[in-house]
C-alpha cells in the first residue's frame, strides 16, 4: 500500500555559483502514513531541511517521484504548511495579520479571516495580543503564532523545520506538550525535523535517521510508547533504550 506521502528516488543537487555542486539528496525514499507524526533526525547539512522545502514545493528535485495522496508535488499548495525555524513572522504585521497571512493569500475576505484566526489565537493562548507586533513577543509566543499561522489554512500536512531550536529549554518543553495537544485535536500528518533525539522520541510515532550528505533514509525507529505522553515518560527505561539505539545509529553519520 502506498504511503499518504510517498517519495521514491528523490535526487537533488545544488549548484551554487562559483562553487562546486552539492548533492543534498540521493535516492531518498520515504513513506508517511496519514495522521502520523514522523520525526527526522540527522547530522547537520544532511538535507533534512532541504527535503521539507521540496515537500513544501519551494525547491524542485532533479529527479524522482514525490506524491501526496497520489498527486505529484508541483509547487506550494494549501494542503501543506510549514512552521519555520526562526519563526518567519513578518515583523511589520500584527499577531492577527501574521496568523491570517495564508488566508489572505487564498483571497478570503476580512470577516471570514477573523472567524478562523480568532479561535486559533485563543487556542495558542495569545488572546489580547492580536494587535502586538512580533518584536513585542517572547520566542515561545512567536513560535505559537508561527504554529497558528500554519494551522489557519487547515492543511493536511504540517511541516516543521526545527521549530523549537531557537527557544530556551523550558519553553521548548512546554511547546512540545502544546504541540502534542494540538496534533491530537487536529490530527494532522506531521513531519518534524530536529536535532534533538529526546524531542523526536517524545513527539513521534516513528523517528527516521538520515545519513550524512547526500542524505538518504538510514533507519526508521517505531516509537511504541503509549499516548497521551507525559513528561515522566522521558525517564522510563524504554525511552532511554530508544534514545541509545537512535544515538548509536546517528553517531556514525556525524563527523566533527
Amino acid at each position: 500500500m502506498p504511503g499518504y506521502i510517498q517519495g521514491r528516488n528523490v535526487n537533488l543537487t545544488f549548484r551554487p555559483p562559483n562553487r562546486g555542486p552539492v548533492r543534498a539528496l540521493s535516492n531518498f525514499d520515504i513513506d508517511i502514513n496519514e495522521g502520523e507524526f514522523l520525526s527526522i533526525v540527522g547530522p547537520s547539512g544532511c538535507g533534512k531541511s532541504t527535503f521539507l522545502n521540496v515537500l513544501l514545493g519551494l525547491v524542485k528535485p532533479d529527479s524522482g517521484d514525490l506524491q501526496i495522496q497520489g498527486k505529484p508535488i508541483v509547487g506550494p499548495g494549501t494542503d501543506r504548511a510549514m512552521v519555520f525555524q526562526e519563526f518567519g513572522l513578518l515583523p511589520w504585521r500584527s499577531v492577527q495579520d501574521n496568523v491570517e497571512l495564508g488566508l489572505e493569500l487564498k483571497g478570503m475576505a476580512r470577516d471570514a479571516r477573523r472567524k478562523v484566526s480568532q479561535p486559533l489565537i485563543e487556542m495558542i493562548g495569545l488572546a489580547g495580543f492580536e494587535g502586538h507586533f512580533p518584536h513585542e513577543l517572547s520566542g515561545g509566543m512567536k513560535q505559537r503564532v508561527g504554529l497558528a499561522r500554519a494551522l489557519a489554512t487547515d492543511p493536511h500536512v504540517l511541516l516543521m523545520d526545527e521549530p523549537f531550536a531557537a527557544l530556551d529549554a523550558q519553553t521548548r518543553d512546554l511547546m512540545q506538550v502544546e504541540l502534542l495537544r494540538v496534533w491530537q485535536e487536529a490530527r494532522k500528518t506531521v513531519l518534524f525535523v530536529t536535532h534533538q533525539i529526546d524531542e523526536a522520541i517524545y513527539l513521534s510515532d516513528r523517528v527516521m535517521v538520515m545519513t550524512k550528505r547526500p542524505g538518504r533514509a538510514k533507519t526508521i525507529f517505531p516509537i511504541n510508547l503509549p499516548r497521551p505522553r507525559d513528561y515522566e515518560m522521558r525517564t522510563t527505561p524504554e525511552f532511554n533504550e530508544l534514545k541509545l539505539e537512535i544515538w548509536n545509529s546517528l553517531k556514525d553519520e556525524i563527523t566533527v
Binding site: P76, A81, F84, G88, L105, K106
Partner: peptide, 16 residues
C-alpha cells in the same frame, strides 16, 4: 530570503 519563502509557501506570486 526566509520571509520570501514564507509567503511563497502560502502560494504568493511575485506581486504578493
Amino acid at each position: 530570503k526566509t520571509l520570501i519563502n514564507v509567503v511563497r509557501s502560502f502560494g504568493a506570486n511575485e506581486w504578493d
